[in-house]
Computed example of a mutant assay.
Amino acid sequence: MRKFIAPLFVALLIAAPASGAFAATAMAPAAKPAVSAQAEQSISSTVKSIDLKAHTLTLADGKTYQLPTTFKDPGLKAGEKVTVQWKMNGRNYEATKVTIG
């Protein structure tokens, strides 16, 4: 009987610190996502094109912004100066507000 208890006791002593270390890493809080990637930004530029059917607005720099489906056209046309407030949605630029001027 002693032949079984002694090796079992040694195995438990060796395994105890390892399981404690595992528990500490498993309970660590997850990293928070970067706020700057989701923060709203703005840009002032000139309209290159607007497609109301596709709900997109392309500015002079070539970037295309996705307009909300509820967007009401205030009379935008190519060459118009606008300010676009936007945020990233995955790889897409999502416009939240468009103002002329």
Rank of each mutant, 00 (worst) to 15 (best):
P29G: 06
I100N: 08
Y65N: 01
K81A: 11
A11H: 04
W86K: 02
A18P: 01
E94C: 11
L67Y: 04
V35T: 04
P29W: 11
Q38D: 11
I50L: 01
D61E: 12
N89G: 01
K48V: 05
A60T: 10
R2K: 10
L67K: 01
Q41M: 13
Q38S: 04
T56E: 02
A16H: 13
A26L: 06
V82Y: 02
I14K: 04
G20A: 13
F4R: 06
A37E: 04
A11G: 13
E94L: 12
G79Y: 03
V98K: 02
T25Y: 09
A15I: 08
E80A: 06
V35E: 02
K48Y: 14
A6M: 08
M1T: 07
T96A: 12
T83Q: 10
N89Q: 11
A21F: 10
L67F: 03
P33C: 01
V47G: 00
A16W: 15
A31F: 07
G90H: 04
K81V: 12
T99G: 04
K48F: 06
G20E: 00
A60P: 00
I100E: 05
K77M: 10
A24M: 02
D51H: 10
R91Q: 15
A54F: 08
Y93D: 03
D61Y: 13
K48P: 00
A24K: 06
L13A: 12
Y65T: 05
E40A: 14
K53P: 01
V35G: 03
A60R: 09
A15S: 15
A30Q: 10
K81I: 04
K3E: 14
L52G: 13
I43F: 03
T64M: 12
G79V: 02
G20H: 08
P29H: 09
Y65W: 14
S44N: 13
L52C: 12
R2Q: 06
H55T: 08
M88D: 09
Q38F: 15
T64L: 03
A18H: 08
A24W: 01
A60E: 12
D51N: 15
I43C: 00
A60Y: 07
F4I: 11
M88N: 10
K97Y: 11
V98P: 03
H55I: 03
T70N: 15
S44A: 15
L13K: 11
H55M: 05
K77N: 10
Y65R: 02
P29Y: 00
F22V: 04
L52E: 04
A39M: 08
A30D: 07
V84E: 00
A39W: 14
N89V: 11
V82W: 05
A37H: 05
E94Q: 15
A30C: 02
V47W: 11
V10N: 10
S42A: 14
E94W: 04
A39R: 03
T99W: 02
G75Q: 11
L52V: 07
V35K: 05
Y65C: 03
K87E: 02
A30W: 00
V84N: 03
K63D: 07
V82T: 00
A31N: 01
A95T: 07
T99Y: 11
A60W: 09
A95C: 03
K72W: 05
I100P: 03
Q66K: 07
T69Q: 09
P29K: 14
S45N: 09
M27S: 14
A6L: 15
S49E: 12
K72I: 15
I5N: 07
L76E: 00
G62A: 06
L8Y: 09
